[in-house]
């Protein structure tokens, strides 16, 4: 077997092997059981005392939703203020980085508060060390913690017998940060530090190259930020080219570690669901469905990247290692493709190669991952999106066999399905209306030259940008001049709605289900931990994505593919 493919297989196997024990641990944290990290309790108590929050007070779904909104308003305000005034702060800015413009600061603050990390600035020239650490680094923890805590509330709602109490958001949020994200990030950051990722407050270095030219080499406190950016499915790069930069991702070993880190927590949360509800068979079915949704796009991507580009073959250039243009030369096309699929399926958004350069159908697969946005997905929110599809699948399956839809002993009624269905169509609505608006504007104003590529590829760039924003992914197809008033504001708006409504909705559904009486499984119960139900759920996800997005895919990457392979 091709050694590159062995590398891909190795990364996937290591991730799955680590995800199950981590899931068991996460479940124990959510349940408040004893764990190895109980020594964090005094720190947590101190933070709660300072914040005057009672972490044990019961909260219904609305109180939890308000708590989540209030916290996130604070995160946004903190970020936008610092981004605007970073040049005035007298410390941790040795490279004298200036403040951002208002719309860029708005976009960046929204982007990091919503766990999207779409970047319309370059890390080297757009953010001081203070901003990188105390805005971006901080928000990468707390935005990931927000998603995990929201998921924990839903777990509680699904497992409760009959209550309005979903748990305490503040408590779950803080524990997600201190007991899940922080320890893992410390381990990965130390590993990256030893592998060559810098962690310094010194200014950029000026060196003389072998040709005798002078060159500035950007550096900074990168290691801790790179660690949490991968683990928290954030993706915001310390440097402009993200994980294609040799300081962010120095070698093949770090590439393995970071790729594992991208997939680890989203996979572990599926197992955490099984351990929490003591339904491991159901967790494995969900894991299987998600894995199937991940492996199909990966297979298509690997096929096209490893077989080279016919346009290059036509020029008489051999491509024995596959299609290398835009792929990371140090890692090869297979590792770049695996990363591209991992980062888009998990809503991470970091890149180790240029997605703009992927073969057209590989680019389409990256977009498909973000269209579905529920196969593992972002930490916490990926499973919440899958939960919405499960609700609809239970409803459809129930109708098909003529039984009252019921899941985990709770009756699924029209109101839950209404919320789930509305949220499922929100994502296509945001993506398609944004793409339509930008396409209309660029045809109307030919002097608004934000496209570097005309035709199908240019359309794909705009489609990708809105898809990335709505899926809270953050990666870019690039080739798009995106630091403009239109792109900053429109993507900011899409990110806000694409983040918070799909968190609030599942909380509401969980609150509704928690308040219902739990009925024991009987012969009339739809078996949701069966292969058939898994396939129905998979079909619902695929049909929704295909019906919503196939027309735009034909106008972008599919049209480009056909022009390459006539």
């Amino acid at each position: 077997m091709n050694t590159e493919l062995i590398g891909v297989l190795f990364i996937l196997l290591v991730t799955v092997a680590l995800a199950s024990p981590l899931g068991r641990y996460v479940s124990r944290v959510f349940k408040g059981e004893r764990t190895l990290l109980d020594f964090m309790a005094p720190l947590e108590r101190f933070i709660f005392r300072m914040s005057r929050i009672d972490p044990n007070s019961p909260m219904d779904w609305k109180q939890n939703a308000w708590a989540m909104i209030k916290l996130n308003v604070f995160f946004f305000a903190w970020a936008i203020i610092i981004l605007l005034v970073q040049s005035w702060l007298p410390f941790w800015n040795p490279n004298h980085i200036g403040g951002m413009s208002l719309t860029q600061a708005f976009h960046t603050a929204v982007s990091f508060a919503t766990n999207t990390n779409q970047q319309h600035y370059l890390g080297e020239t757009g953010a001081s060390y203070f901003t990188q650490l105390l805005v971006f680094g901080y928000l990468q923890f707390v935005s990931a913690g927000t998603g995990i805590a929201a998921l924990a509330l839903v777990f509680k709602g699904l497992s409760s017998k009959q209550t309005t109490d979903l748990g305490n958001f503040y408590n779950l949020f803080l524990k997600s940060c201190t007991r899940i994200l922080l320890p893992l990030a410390i381990i990965l950051a130390i590993f990256l530090l030893f592998m060559g990722t810098p962690d310094t407050f010194q200014a950029n270095a000026t060196i003389t190259t072998l040709e005798g030219h002078t060159q500035t080499v950007a550096t900074g406190p990168a290691a801790p930020m790179v660690a949490i950016k991968q683990l928290g499915t954030n993706g915001g790069g310390f440097f402009g080219v993200n994980s294609a930069h040799p300081f962010e991702n120095p070698n093949y070993v770090t590439n393995i570690a970071e790729n594992v880190a991208i997939l680890l927590i989203p996979m572990a949360l599926v197992f955490a669901f099984g351990f929490y509800l003591e339904r491991m068979k159901l967790a494995w079915i969900i894991f299987g469905v998600m894995m199937l949704g991940f492996l199909i796009p990966l297979g298509v991507g690997l096929h096209y990247e490893l077989h080279g580009n016919p346009a290059i073959t036509k020029m008489g250039v051999q491509q024995p290692t596959g299609y290398m243009e835009g792929n990371e030369v140090r890692f090869g096309p297979a590792a770049t493709t695996l990363w591209a699929m991992s980062t888009t399926t998990t809503s991470n958004g970091s890149v180790n190669g240029m997605h703009d350069s992927l073969m057209p159908l590989t680019g389409a697969m990256a977009m498909l991952n973000m269209f579905m946005n529920c196969n593992f997905g972002g930490v916490g929110v990926g499973f919440l999106n899958f939960f919405l599809f499960l609700i609809v699948a239970v409803f459809i399956a129930g109708l098909m066999i003529g039984r009252t839809p019921e899941w985990l002993g709770k009756k699924i009624e029209g109101r839950e399905v209404t919320i789930a269905a509305l949220l499922i169509i929100l994502h296509p609505l945001l993506v398609l209306s944004g793409t339509a608006l930008s396409t209309w504007l660029i045809t109307l104003h030919s002097n608004w030259d934000w496209l570097n590529n005309p035709g199908f590829h240019g359309f794909s760039e705009m489609l990708y940008e809105f898809t990335s924003a709505s899926a809270n992914n953050g990666s870019g197809f690039e080739g798009l001049i995106d630091n403009t008033v239109f792109w900053n504001l429109s993507c900011g708006f899409v990110m806000l709605l694409g983040r918070y409504l799909p968190i609030i909705g599942p909380m509401a559904i969980a609150g509704s289900l928690a308040s219902k009486k739990k009925t024991p499984d009987s012969a009339g119960t739809l078996p949701s931990d069966s292969l058939a139900f898994g396939l129905i759920t998979f079909a619902v996800i695929v049909f929704v994505a295909a019906l919503s997005f196939f027309p735009v895919l034909t106008m972008g990457p599919i049209a480009e593919h056909v022009s390459l392979f006539p």
Binding site: W66, S101, T103, F106, R415, T418, I419, G492, L501
Partner: peptide, 30 residues
């Protein structure tokens, strides 16, 4: 003008997010 556009976008997003809590609650109470 840019300030106005930014504030409008932010305000509209906040209205929709905050409104969604009430909206979902109304759906559940139907």
């Amino acid at each position: 003008m840019t300030i106005l556009y930014t504030l409008l976008v932010l305000a509209w997003a906040i209205v929709l997010i905050v409104g969604s809590v009430t909206f979902f609650d109304k759906i559940l109470k139907r």
